[in-house]
Design a protein around this nucleic acid. Structure first.
Lengths: 204, 204
DNA sequence: TTGCTAACCAAGCAAGCGCTTGGTAGACTG
DNA sequence: CAGTCTACCAAGCGCTTGCTTGGTTAGCAA
């Protein structure tokens, strides 16, 4: 952040900045895909959002589908690290599940919301191969959930099948993007609390 | 099924059958929209599914969007009557909620699954006006839920906000179309039981 | 027999799509 | 200073899309 960092940023500003445009394209794609859906977003719209022409998009990505794949790939990475962080931050199983729920809701409604919403609800826009690919990437994410739920089952905190419970939870949490307003009277902690309340009996 | 019915079917085969083709188009549309999504289903595919050419589709419907709207409209009607039937069939609030959950899951996985899945997950493919229209149609359906949940709250069966609870339940149930296999080891009653188990403490 | 209508076909239009091509300005490299 | 490379533009290609148009056939009523 000292002089050298400043000079570096100046140099980067003068030199071609592939990563910058690429990143901006991914951000715009996540936003547009979330707002209008993958199919309804044209490459031309995407290009306009970052101030280039449609053909130039294919200098950064080989196809439109690859953009969607890359949005999901980078999103899943962030999802995994967020969830992992939440998982290790708690010392009891009960607290761990609360943190996991909170983390997932924050992923869905915080700054990462565009990419996460796209990853949750638009995987069917990918071809079969790439669909399998991101599905296998999500496994690591789901495993964190399943481990915590298995633990909760063994400790008698829940008495439902971890797999089924996780699936129901996925739907409940994911669907919040269609009704929960982050700025409203209900805080994200409130929401997480309500979800938690459905999982186990007691939760303060 | 006697001679007269046979003659009737012969006559129907000879006479123009607008309603028949219309109905078949709606069925095919529900199936194709569910399988590939609205945007990825072309009018030509739709026409081919019922054995006519693409232009002929517009003799029955004024636009592709109207087909989607009509699929949703007729589906919501069936959803409301199914839910109403389930609601009045139970005499206790607890049983009523179980029946509601069972009914919604049956809508999602029974013969109506195509239209219901489309109604649940593809309303964003409609223009803003028609989106509001089917949203207002769904209100009656949601009100049945909210009344039952309000009743359960007053009787102490649940202790969460009915509105929030319903939204979480909507997601949990709706998401089952992505993982629950109707023919598998888990029956629909089992699934309904699991969902119910998350709602209140005890449920045999 | 004539007239009317529902239900369709055959052909194709205008617009938009994802993507390709050939070229160029500007910064860096040897 | 020549050569190279990145990042882009300008133009447009081939294809698909939703939808239209004009005409045809079969059934029915008067």
């Amino acid at each position: 952040m000292s002089v050298s960092a400043y000079e570096l940023s100046l140099q980067m500003a003068r030199t071609p900045r592939l990563d910058d445009r690429r990143e901006r394209l991914l951000d715009a794609a996540a936003r547009l895909f979330r707002e209008h859906g993958y199919e309804r977003t044209s490459v031309r719209q995407l290009a306009e959002a970052v101030g280039i022409l449609s053909g130039s998009v294919f200098h950064h990505f080989s196809s439109k589908e690859e953009i969607l794949l890359e949005v999901m790939r980078s999103t899943i990475e962030r999802m995994i690290s967020s969830l992992h962080e939440a998982s290790v931050s708690a010392d009891t199983t009960e607290a761990r599940l609360f943190q996991l729920i909170r983390a997932e809701l924050e992923l869905l409604h915080g700054p990462t919301r565009d990419g996460v919403a796209v990853t949750f609800f638009q995987w069917h826009s990918l071809g079969p191969d790439k669909q399998r690919h991101i599905l296998s990437m999500r496994e690591e994410y789901e495993n964190i959930w399943l481990e915590a739920l298995q633990q909760a089952l063994e400790q008698g905190l829940i008495d439902t099948d971890p797999f089924v419970t996780r699936r129901l939870l996925t739907g409940a949490n994911g669907w919040t993007i269609y009704w929960y307003q982050a700025g409203g009277s209900m805080s994200l902690d409130d929401l997480a609390g309500q979800v938690c309340h459905l999982l186990f009996r007691e939760r303060k």
